[in-house]
Design a protein around this nucleic acid. Structure first.
Lengths: 222, 222
DNA sequence: GGAGGATATCTAACGGCGTTAGATTGATTT
DNA sequence: AAATCAATCTAACGCCGTTAGATATCCTCC
């Protein structure tokens, strides 16, 4: 009967790339845990088992997602100033990862890097090497920088609050659970810094980035 | 019949703490994905549903695991030198997390911090404050440091190789997949640095830590 | 000592997951 | 028209976290 055939014809073809696009949309919209074979299949108008003709398994989908996100990270503009280009790369990495909050943990845990992931690394090393870093110092520097950026964003995307009042609610709840005498410095910082109007954890990023860049600059001239 | 009763008597009592101990052992031995309600129950000589009388759900077990690991991180020895104590705290954090490779991602993603987690944070802030950091500078510093440490260990525990020869196999495999002209700096660094005898990614930690400490020191005197 | 209630455990099931085997369909080529 | 081949389907397997409700064990109080 032709019904099935017209349905199939009206449907965009299922393939690896379309599957990844759908997976990206689902992950962004409802979190990475909503990315299931059955869900992607439904989204593509197909049954779960059919996906295995286009993709080796879920792991390959996750690898593909990571590389999609890596590809989205805008490379730094060429600059004579290594500090500027390295800093740009770090900031672009962060903003991109914030758009795909599920991606940080995934990037670290995936096993086989895709082309975009390698390109991102290449870019980082290039900025440093062209800025005068020796090979070993560039290795130290890129490891330090990426560790900082990934570590920061990892914490940032997992914060259990999304605005100042939720933060206030959460911190005061924690403070009520424990006697103040037990964590004097923590409570002091909470009250006099974190709970001050205008505080946002994300603002710490630039301070830390400057710290790391300053430290890394010393490596260059070593 | 008394058989069941003696069995129950011979069995160590099931409770929250024992459940967490078993969960820790299973996670260390076979990875966090082996920590399932059914598995923990089997390990405790009980059915899965029974666990729900001692624990609210799997999330609570994961929270408990994170705090167990946090409690294991040895606090730095009191020292007049903030640099030394902060550095010790960072190194202890790393070595502990390396003993429980599943813990890094979990620590970041869990929502409600336990007492040991808070204590660890308190310790970090105290080292800095007693070392002469103002409240805002201590906030910047502890965020930067912990971001770096967690970020580094996150990459470290997810490395898809465990020794020099596996690293060599993997890197050469990657290099064969892509044309050398595409990633010149990356390949250069791989060949002239990473593949040199004695290289181990873990050694980068101390370089980065020094970098961050140097950068953070400038915050203090700002 | 027995009754009653609390606590702990059990069995059974629900809906979901990734994955596989094997049948079926549809289009393309011979 | 027959044969081939890729794409899809149905059905199932063994896991998962969690819940409802029956059952067993233990402690307390009369």
């Amino acid at each position: 009967m032709g019904r099935r055939s017209t349905e199939a014809a009206n449907r965009a073809p299922v393939n690896r790339q379309r599957t990844l696009e759908v997976a990206l949309a689902v992950a962004d919209g409802e979190g990475i845990e909503a990315v299931t074979m059955r869900r992607l299949a439904r989204e593509l108008g197909v049954e779960a088992a059919s996906l295995y003709h286009h993709v080796n398994g879920k792991d390959q989908i996750l690898d593909g997602l990571v590389d999609l996100v890596a590809a989205e990270i805008e490379p730094p503009k060429p600059s004579a100033d290594w500090r500027e280009s390295v800093s740009q790369r770090a900031r672009h990495t962060r903003t991109t990862l914030l758009r795909h909050p599920w991606a940080v943990s995934l990037m670290a845990s995936r096993t086989s890097p895709g082309p975009a992931t390698l390109r991102l690394l290449e870019t980082g090393i290039r900025c440093l090497r062209e800025g005068g870093f020796s090979i070993p110092m560039a290795a130290h520097a890129v490891s330090t920088l990426d560790s900082y950026v990934h570590g920061f964003v990892l914490q940032e995307v997992n914060l259990p609050f999304r605005n100042e009042s939720e933060l206030a609610a959460m911190t005061t709840a924690i403070m009520k659970t424990f006697p103040a005498a037990e964590f004097p410095y923590l409570f002091e910082m909470t009250i006099e810094h974190v709970l001050q109007p205008g505080y946002a954890y994300g603002n710490e990023f630039d301070y830390g980035l400057t710290v790391v860049l300053n430290g890394v600059a010393a490596l260059r001239d070593q």
